[in-house]
Lab assay of single mutants.
Amino acid sequence: AKPPKTVTVKVEVTNADGETQTRTVTLTNLPKDLKPGDTVTLPETGQTARIVEITP
């Protein structure tokens, strides 16, 4: 079996106070056609994050 493909992405997350924070997260099994501006759900927090940058 192939190991899951991990991708490092820079995302913007809005916290409970309405502040936008930029975080770098490593995600696995992202859709192939994901692009900056799309939103993903962070598995560890369940927060919705907007992708700023994808590092191949």
Score class of each variant (00 low, 15 high):
residue 35 K to C: 04
residue 37 G to Q: 01
residue 23 R to I: 15
residue 3 P to Q: 05
residue 14 T to C: 07
residue 49 A to Q: 00
residue 23 R to C: 14
residue 28 T to N: 09
residue 53 E to R: 03
residue 52 V to A: 02
residue 37 G to E: 01
residue 18 G to T: 01
residue 2 K to C: 10
residue 41 T to K: 08
residue 44 E to R: 06
residue 28 T to P: 08
residue 47 Q to S: 04
residue 41 T to Q: 10
residue 34 L to S: 07
residue 15 N to R: 05
residue 4 P to V: 13
residue 53 E to W: 12
residue 17 D to C: 08
residue 46 G to Y: 03
residue 27 L to W: 10
residue 55 T to P: 08
residue 13 V to F: 15
residue 30 L to M: 14
residue 1 A to Q: 12
residue 26 T to Y: 12
residue 4 P to T: 14
residue 27 L to S: 02
residue 44 E to G: 13
residue 21 Q to V: 15
residue 39 T to K: 07
residue 2 K to Q: 12
residue 19 E to H: 11
residue 4 P to M: 13
residue 39 T to P: 03
residue 23 R to Q: 12
residue 56 P to V: 14
residue 53 E to G: 04
residue 35 K to P: 00
residue 5 K to D: 11
residue 8 T to G: 02
residue 12 E to M: 11
residue 15 N to L: 12
residue 17 D to N: 12
residue 12 E to C: 05
residue 20 T to P: 05
residue 28 T to A: 11
residue 27 L to N: 01
residue 10 K to C: 07
residue 18 G to L: 02
residue 18 G to Y: 02
residue 16 A to E: 13
residue 14 T to P: 03
residue 44 E to T: 08
residue 38 D to E: 03
residue 1 A to E: 12
residue 32 K to V: 12
residue 27 L to C: 09
residue 3 P to G: 05
residue 1 A to Y: 13
residue 30 L to F: 15
residue 16 A to V: 09
residue 1 A to H: 13
residue 5 K to E: 10
residue 2 K to N: 13
residue 22 T to Q: 11
residue 3 P to E: 09
residue 7 V to T: 09
residue 22 T to W: 11
residue 29 N to R: 07
residue 26 T to I: 13
residue 41 T to L: 12
residue 1 A to G: 12
residue 38 D to H: 03
residue 4 P to W: 08
residue 28 T to M: 11
residue 39 T to F: 15
residue 41 T to E: 08
residue 38 D to R: 02
residue 7 V to M: 13
residue 43 P to Y: 05
residue 5 K to T: 13
residue 33 D to Q: 08
residue 42 L to T: 01
residue 42 L to R: 00
residue 54 I to E: 02
residue 1 A to L: 12
residue 41 T to N: 07
residue 8 T to S: 08
residue 12 E to I: 11
residue 16 A to K: 10
residue 29 N to F: 09
residue 24 T to S: 07
residue 51 I to T: 00
residue 1 A to V: 13
residue 54 I to D: 01
residue 31 P to C: 08
residue 48 T to W: 06
residue 36 P to E: 08
residue 51 I to V: 15
residue 8 T to Y: 09
residue 15 N to F: 10
residue 14 T to E: 08
residue 47 Q to W: 06
residue 20 T to S: 08
residue 1 A to N: 12
residue 11 V to M: 04
residue 33 D to G: 12
residue 5 K to Q: 12
residue 15 N to S: 11
residue 32 K to H: 14
residue 42 L to W: 04
residue 47 Q to K: 04
residue 5 K to A: 11
residue 4 P to G: 13
residue 53 E to V: 04
residue 41 T to R: 10
residue 23 R to D: 03
residue 15 N to K: 05
residue 22 T to M: 13
residue 39 T to E: 09
residue 7 V to H: 09
residue 14 T to R: 09
residue 30 L to E: 05
residue 54 I to S: 02
residue 40 V to D: 00
residue 52 V to G: 01
residue 30 L to K: 03
residue 30 L to Q: 11
residue 21 Q to D: 11
residue 15 N to V: 06
residue 9 V to W: 02
residue 31 P to M: 13
residue 25 V to T: 03
residue 38 D to A: 04
residue 40 V to W: 11
residue 23 R to G: 03
residue 35 K to G: 06
residue 22 T to D: 03
residue 33 D to S: 06
residue 3 P to W: 08
residue 15 N to Q: 07
residue 35 K to I: 05
residue 5 K to V: 13
residue 10 K to S: 04
residue 8 T to W: 11
residue 34 L to N: 01
residue 2 K to P: 11
residue 29 N to Y: 10
residue 9 V to F: 05
residue 50 R to E: 04
residue 24 T to Q: 07
residue 22 T to K: 04
residue 19 E to N: 10
residue 29 N to L: 07
residue 27 L to D: 01
residue 41 T to I: 15
residue 11 V to E: 00
residue 36 P to R: 05
residue 31 P to N: 14
residue 42 L to Q: 00
residue 26 T to N: 08
residue 40 V to H: 01
residue 15 N to H: 05
residue 13 V to C: 04
residue 28 T to W: 10
residue 9 V to K: 00
residue 20 T to D: 02
residue 11 V to L: 06
residue 46 G to M: 04
residue 43 P to I: 08
residue 21 Q to Y: 15
residue 24 T to A: 04
residue 56 P to K: 08
residue 35 K to H: 06
residue 42 L to H: 02
residue 14 T to S: 06
residue 29 N to K: 05
residue 14 T to H: 06
residue 16 A to L: 08
residue 50 R to H: 08
residue 37 G to M: 01
residue 48 T to V: 14
residue 21 Q to T: 14
residue 40 V to I: 15
residue 52 V to Y: 03
residue 9 V to E: 00
residue 22 T to I: 15
residue 19 E to W: 09
residue 37 G to S: 01
residue 32 K to I: 14
residue 40 V to L: 11
residue 31 P to Y: 14
residue 15 N to C: 09
residue 49 A to T: 02
residue 23 R to K: 14
residue 54 I to K: 01
residue 2 K to F: 12
residue 11 V to Q: 00
residue 54 I to C: 03
residue 56 P to A: 14
residue 24 T to H: 08
residue 46 G to Q: 05
residue 12 E to Q: 10
residue 8 T to M: 09
residue 9 V to D: 00
residue 53 E to I: 03
residue 28 T to Y: 11
residue 29 N to A: 08
residue 25 V to I: 14
residue 34 L to Q: 02
residue 55 T to F: 15
residue 55 T to H: 14
residue 11 V to S: 00
residue 56 P to R: 06
residue 18 G to C: 04
residue 29 N to Q: 07
residue 39 T to H: 10
residue 31 P to F: 14
residue 49 A to G: 12
residue 56 P to C: 07
residue 19 E to C: 11
residue 19 E to Q: 12
residue 17 D to Q: 12
residue 26 T to L: 11
residue 10 K to P: 00
residue 6 T to Q: 12
residue 26 T to S: 08
residue 21 Q to S: 12
residue 41 T to G: 02
residue 46 G to V: 02
residue 49 A to N: 01
residue 20 T to H: 05
residue 30 L to A: 14
residue 38 D to W: 03
residue 18 G to V: 01
residue 4 P to D: 11
residue 10 K to A: 03
residue 19 E to G: 09
residue 40 V to Q: 00
residue 19 E to M: 10
residue 28 T to Q: 10
residue 23 R to A: 09
residue 10 K to G: 00
residue 38 D to L: 04
residue 39 T to G: 02
residue 4 P to Y: 08
residue 35 K to V: 07
residue 37 G to R: 01
residue 34 L to G: 02
residue 51 I to C: 02
residue 2 K to V: 12
residue 16 A to G: 09
residue 26 T to V: 12
residue 23 R to M: 15
residue 13 V to W: 15
residue 26 T to K: 09
residue 13 V to L: 10
residue 36 P to Q: 05
residue 47 Q to P: 00
residue 50 R to S: 06
residue 17 D to G: 07
residue 45 T to S: 10
residue 54 I to G: 01
residue 47 Q to C: 05
residue 28 T to C: 09
residue 55 T to S: 13
residue 46 G to F: 04
residue 48 T to Q: 11
residue 44 E to A: 08
residue 2 K to D: 11
residue 14 T to Q: 10
residue 13 V to R: 01
residue 23 R to W: 15
residue 12 E to S: 08
residue 25 V to K: 01
residue 17 D to P: 03
residue 25 V to C: 07
residue 5 K to I: 13
residue 4 P to Q: 13
residue 10 K to H: 04
residue 33 D to Y: 09
residue 23 R to P: 01
residue 2 K to L: 13
residue 43 P to Q: 06
residue 3 P to R: 04
residue 38 D to M: 09
residue 18 G to H: 02
residue 6 T to P: 10
residue 14 T to A: 06
residue 42 L to N: 02
residue 17 D to V: 09
residue 10 K to D: 02
residue 45 T to E: 03
residue 7 V to G: 03
residue 14 T to F: 09
residue 55 T to Q: 13
residue 1 A to T: 13
residue 45 T to R: 02
residue 17 D to I: 08
residue 49 A to D: 00
residue 36 P to Y: 05
residue 12 E to D: 04
residue 52 V to R: 02
residue 42 L to E: 02
residue 10 K to F: 06
residue 55 T to A: 13
residue 3 P to A: 04
residue 44 E to M: 08
residue 5 K to Y: 15
residue 19 E to L: 11
residue 21 Q to P: 01
residue 52 V to N: 01
residue 43 P to H: 06
residue 55 T to C: 13
residue 25 V to G: 00
residue 53 E to T: 07
residue 54 I to N: 01
residue 26 T to A: 06
residue 37 G to D: 02
residue 55 T to N: 13
residue 52 V to T: 04
residue 17 D to Y: 11
residue 41 T to W: 15
residue 50 R to W: 10
residue 7 V to P: 02
residue 27 L to P: 00
residue 25 V to W: 10
residue 32 K to T: 11
residue 49 A to W: 09
residue 36 P to W: 04
residue 51 I to G: 00
residue 43 P to K: 05
residue 44 E to Q: 08
residue 40 V to R: 00
residue 49 A to S: 02
residue 33 D to H: 12
residue 54 I to L: 06
residue 41 T to M: 11
residue 44 E to P: 05
residue 51 I to H: 00
residue 42 L to K: 00
residue 21 Q to I: 15
residue 11 V to A: 02
residue 41 T to A: 05
residue 9 V to A: 05
residue 56 P to Q: 12
residue 51 I to D: 00
